[in-house]
């Protein structure tokens, strides 16, 4: 089945007629994603990429039966767009925008707390189940169908790991970018749980970063609840404390959230830790075969 998105997912794009949205929607469609329409307020009734454009998400859901939304609106408008998607009953909301104010996300999470939906991102390349459904901006051609789940905070480091896997013939069930922000929609535990429950996933690669407790929390959860092996890496071994390394979430604020401290704890908790990012694929290959 893969996790969160699959070949029967009915995808809409919010901010559909924008330049980036158009480019990536086209690329997704060319790779088999079922994009059923899009939303651009004020352009309802138009046709874009041979798909209907709606003014509101609820109209789009009513007319197309959409259950997944890719949000391509700029950061200042993203929180509103996420809440609109949730209100319309979308089950999986993928937020590409990088630079959403943190307190906007705090409010979004409160709004989402009593709705049964998955928010992927923000600040993510998105999610892809290879050859079935892609909602995001990643280069599809490096992914291939397979049985390894991938979950990462970083986008380009996700590509790096996937290419290392693909070079060794390991494909992906689903690859999820949870995003680099300190307050984000979905944490590692939620994705690990989905991979554990997915019969088409045999093992998981988890790629974290400095800052915050979530990689260790996930390793702790995995030790108690997971039967499938997990290979893990945390980027930022060489990062100095107190300096934010690009991602809003990537800052070492105490002794416990340095890369090495996290990897030591993950190792103790049973994760197969790889310390050299150039060997993620090789390590996974050795552990999983």
């Amino acid at each position: 089945m893969s996790v969160f998105v699959h070949k029967h997912s009915r995808v809409i794009i919010q901010g559909f007629t924008g330049q980036h949205a158009t480019f990536h929607a086209e690329e997704s469609m060319a790779n088999g994603t079922n994009v059923v329409g899009g939303v651009t307020p004020g352009k309802g009734g138009q046709i874009h990429l041979e798909r209907p454009v709606f003014d509101t998400v609820s109209q789009a859901v009513e007319e197309t039966g959409a259950d997944v939304s890719g949000i391509f609106v700029p950061p200042p408008f993203a929180a509103d767009a996420i809440m609109e998607a949730l209100e319309a009953g979308i089950g999986v909301v993928v937020v590409i925008a990088d630079g959403i104010p943190v307190q906007d996300m705090v409010r979004v999470k409160r709004y989402a707390s009593d709705r049964n939906a998955i928010i992927i991102g923000p600040n993510t390349p998105g999610i892809i189940t290879p050859a079935a459904c892609k909602v995001g901006i990643m280069p599809s051609h490096i992914y291939q169908p397979g049985r390894i789940g991938v979950v990462s905070r970083s986008g380009t480091l996700n590509y790096e790991a996937v290419q290392q896997m693909s070079a060794l013939g390991m494909g992906q069930s689903t690859s999820v970018g949870i995003g680099g922000d300190p307050v984000n929609g979905t944490d590692f535990v939620t994705v690990l749980r989905a991979f554990e429950e997915d019969p088409e996933t045999d093992a998981v690669i988890m790629i974290g970063e400095i800052g915050g407790p979530q990689e260790v929390d996930a390793a702790r959860w995995a030790r108690e609840n997971m039967s499938k092996p997990v290979v893990g890496f945390v980027a930022g071994i060489s990062a100095p404390p107190g300096r934010r390394m690009g991602h809003a979430g990537a800052i070492i604020s105490g002794e416990s959230d340095t890369a090495n401290a996290k990897m030591d704890l993950m190792e103790e908790l049973g994760v197969h830790v790889v310390r050299n990012p150039a060997l993620i694929g090789e390590t996974a290959h050795r552990v999983f075969s």
């Binding site: 400095i210 890496f233 071994i237 060489s238 990062a239 690009g246 050299n276 990012p277 150039a278």
Partner: peptide
Amino acid sequence: VNGAGLAMATMDAISFHQGKP
């Protein structure tokens, strides 16, 4: 490098080979 995660990982790979970014 492009991307914060890959930029950190690149620094890490250099450090792994005893280099200093």
